[in-house]
C-alpha cells in the first residue's frame, strides 16, 4: 500500500470500524450489502488513517479557507426570470401524477 506523504503510517490506529461504515452508509442512504461492507470498510479505514495526518498541521491561529477567492456580497436582484414549464420539470420524473412528482410513501417526519 503506497503512503500518502505526511500520513500516519501503517502502524497508526484504524480510525473507522465496519460498524461505523454501516452507520455512515445509513446516514448517506446507501443500502450496502455485507459483501460491500467487507470490501469497503478496510479501504475506508486506510484512507481515513491517511487523511488523519492533517489533524495536527494547523493551529488555532490559522483561519479556515472556505472559498479560494475572498469575495463577499454577491447578490441577485429580486426580479423574476423564466424557469421551466411543468412538463419540462416532470419530463425526467420516474413517476408523476396530477402534475406532481409521485414518490413512494414517506416514513419519516419533516424536519
Amino acid at each position: 500500500m503506497p503512503e500518502i506523504p505526511g500520513a500516519n503510517g501503517p502502524d497508526g490506529q484504524v480510525a473507522i470500524t465496519r460498524e461505523e461504515v454501516a452507520h455512515l452508509a445509513d446516514l448517506a442512504r446507501i443500502d450496502l450489502s455485507d459483501a460491500e461492507l467487507d470490501h469497503l470498510a478496510p479501504q475506508l479505514a486506510v484512507i481515513v488513517e491517511s487523511v488523519a495526518s492533517i489533524s495536527g498541521v494547523a493551529g488555532d491561529d490559522v483561519p479556515a479557507t472556505s472559498h479560494p477567492l475572498p469575495v463577499t456580497n454577491v447578490f441577485r436582484e429580486d426580479v423574476v426570470v423564466p424557469g421551466l414549464t411543468a412538463a419540462q420539470a416532470l419530463a425526467a420524473a420516474p413517476a408523476s401524477e396530477q402534475q406532481r412528482f409521485s414518490v413512494p410513501r414517506i416514513l419519516g417526519d419533516e424536519q
Binding site: 447578490f75 441577485r76 426580479v79 423574476v80 426570470v81 424557469g83 421551466l84 411543468a86 402534475q99
Partner: peptide, 30 residues
Amino acid sequence: GCPTEFGADPNTQVCPTCLGLPGAMPAVNR
C-alpha cells in the same frame, strides 16, 4: 428567479436551481 405567488398550478414556479437539478447553482436574493 422563480416567482413566489401562492396558489399557482403545481410545478409551474420551478427552475433547475429550486428543483435541485444536477449542475444548477444558487444566487442570493438581495
